[in-house]
Amino acid sequence: MLRLSKFEYLAPGSLEEACSLLNEHQGKTRLLAGGTDLLPSMKQGLFAPGYVLDLKKIDGLDDIKGGSDKEVKIGALCTLTSIEESRAVTENFPSLAYAASVVGAPCIRNMGTIGGNVALETRCLYFNQSRFWRNTIEKCIKLGGNVCHVVKGAKRCYACFMADTVPVLMALDARVVIKGINGTRRCHIKELYTHEGRSPNNLRSTDIIAEIILTMPDKRSGSSYKKLRLRQAIDYPLAGAAAHVVMEGDTCMDARIVLAAAGSGPVEVTEAQDFLIERPITKEVIKDVGEMAQKAAHPVANMTNSPEYRRKMAGVFAQRALKEAVMRARER
């Protein structure tokens, strides 16, 4: 049986208690939410924390509050299944409901949480392997070594950020509420990511994501997410794109296009966003956006499919996402 190494289990009943425990055991603790990402990594010996702090016993972190007409608040411990099934989400943010519904398999979505997806570790063909496998090659940067097996001579880690919900949350300009030892702070989700594979987000070791806040979408807006994966049943994205547009008739007034699995963080296609403003959406425009997305994507050889293919697909999926987002905006 594949076993976990020993650790002490902490199960605080409140966020305050959790923060003080994190402070007490700084740098030695890993947060456990759904466990679908952390526990496999620990079983493979990628992390060996002295303490595991279970957030699931904290009340009130798994609610979706959609009462107000201004915003929807999603507790960080909401499972992906609950997001996929929530009326507040499906009615207002269908792209998020869809992104949640294509993560892993039903069992994984019943366990995995949105907070966990936001704070997902990056993945790499040379990192997410058994200890035996890893011992046959030199230690890579992500494991604390000096080499990168993917990009020769690299100074940083190029592991891939593969969360499905993050590009969508970024396209919807979600805000994240973070509890820390010095109180609560809020930031735009975009500000969380470092685009560096070794530590993909800038959350401190004493920080806990508590909530994700989404502003109600404009009546003229539409959003979409499209994902490419090898197996439809259960897989990380090989490429993916989220799009959000605000339309005035046939003209795009505002747009956000964010790519999944295209780098060590969620990749915003800023060129396309600027290009789309006050431009009528035509077939040619959508094609141009695809090319810009392809240019912005920088997949490297850290997954089973070739980077060339994934790069091309980033363009194709950006086009599909944009097309659907525009269609949804028109239907509203």
Binding site: Y9, A11, G35, V52, K56
Partner: peptide, 11 residues
Amino acid sequence: AVLACLTLALS
């Protein structure tokens, strides 16, 4: 439905 291999018994 959950995965027992990724669930801590204490949780």
